[in-house]
């Protein structure tokens, strides 16, 4: 019986003793979708992934993966999954090719079929020239690609990726993203966790923001930014000691209604200054810098300069999921 959704979880909970790692979350992943779990370390992302992968039991709630309960049909569920763990756990005692073949054998696939499939996957991972090498001779990016190739050996319906590009250099990341795009196009469901915003924006059609085991928000990357942040951000540094007091000043300066609209009833941190093209929302104080949220960061900067304030550095950028997370939780994602 064909199931519309790839994964559906309701009231999903995981407790280790007194500690609640996942606190009653609901989500659905549709077939062929690429779905992200975004959150800081310790938010419960990996635990959720482990419950999907049928290697962790649930404390409460229901879950169906490809129409099956992972707790009851462990091997059957795992046969439909490709799992890419946070750390490459390749088999160092085997060669690159043997790594893929043996992994396929764990699924009980016949050797004859595997030998052809393996060549195909080596090609896909751009590792054909390294087929007989030992794993320890591979670079970090190559190891990651081999881990992904290996997870594809059973032609999984759902691919689980835990922090797929953490620790890779930018070039290796882009090669990897390219491979993942291809998989998405071929109809594989991707579920990935990340704490890299750019990765979530690149790869996920839809994502949930998780913190302390609960879902803080859900939506597409663009939708989340639209709903929870301004279009642009101005990053300012005044020096460690002065950031806090400057924040007060900036809020008053940018937030106060201009002379033209002094009787505008909207409160000081609203969008009352929209008429002056700043679109100011609020200021976040981080230990090393200030973030000014505004529709037009450029105009905000002009206004700050006009008021005679002299930040040590300033940077105008577009709003990202990082800002969404900061807004939702009051904390930064990578500390």
């Amino acid at each position: 019986m064909p199931v519309e959704h790839a994964i559906r979880a309701t009231g999903l909970t995981k407790r280790y003793g007194d500690f609640t790692a996942v606190d009653g979350i609901d989500f659905t992943v549709n077939r062929g979708e690429s779905f992200g779990l975004l959150g800081p370390n310790g938010a419960g992302k990996s635990t959720t992934m482990r419950m999907i992968a049928a290697v962790a039991s649930r404390s409460a709630g229901t879950m169906s993966v490809a129409g099956l309960d992972p707790e009851k049909n462990g091997p059957e569920v795992r046969a439909r999954l490709g799992v890419i763990p946070q750390q490459d756990n390749l088999d160092e005692e085997l060669s690159v090719r043997e790594n893929i073949i043996m992994y396929g054998r764990y699924f009980g696939l016949p050797r004859r079929w595997l030998s052809a499939k393996t060549e195909e996957l080596l090609e896909f991972a751009q590792l054909t020239h390294k087929a007989t090498s030992r794993v320890e001779d591979l670079s970090g990016g190559m190891k990651r690609r081999l881990t992904i190739a290996r997870a594809l050996v059973n032609e999984p319906e759902i691919l689980l990726l835990d922090e797929p590009t953490t620790g890779l250099d930018p070039q290796a990341r882009h090669i990897l993203w390219d491979r993942l795009f291809r998989l998405r196009e071929s109809g594989t469901t991707l579920v990935l966790t990340t704490h890299h915003m750019d990765e979530a924006e690149q790869l996920c059609e839809r994502l949930i923001v998780v913190d302390e085991g609960r879902i803080m928000a859900e939506g597409s990357p663009a939708g989340l930014i639209r709903d929870h942040s301004t279009r642009e951000v101005l990053e300012l540094r005044f020096g460690m000691d002065r950031n806090q007091e400057q924040a007060q000043q900036l809020t008053t300066l940018l937030g106060s209604p201009g002379p033209a609209s002094s009787n505008d009833p909207v409160s000081s941190n609203g969008s009352a200054t929209a008429g002056r093209d700043v679109g100011f929302s609020h200021v976040e104080v981080l230990p090393d810098r200030l973030l000014v949220y505004a529709g037009s960061a450029e105009s905000a900067l002009e206004q700050i300069h006009a008021a005679g304030l002299r930040p040590m550095t300033s940077l105008v950028r577009r709003s990202s999921l990082e800002d969404v997370f900061l807004r939702l939780t009051g904390r930064t994602l990578v500390d």
Binding site: E71, K72, N73, G74, P75, E76, A79, R105, Y106, F107, G108, L109, P110, W113, A116, K117, E120, N154, E155
Partner: peptide, 22 residues
């Protein structure tokens, strides 16, 4: 061509969660 993915077979029934016969 290597053909379609062969059926991945595993034991069902008693203790299928612990022992897949491989």
């Amino acid at each position: 061509s290597r053909g379609e993915l062969p059926r991945i077979s595993f034991r069902r029934g008693f203790g299928a969660n612990y022992y897949s016969g491989n």
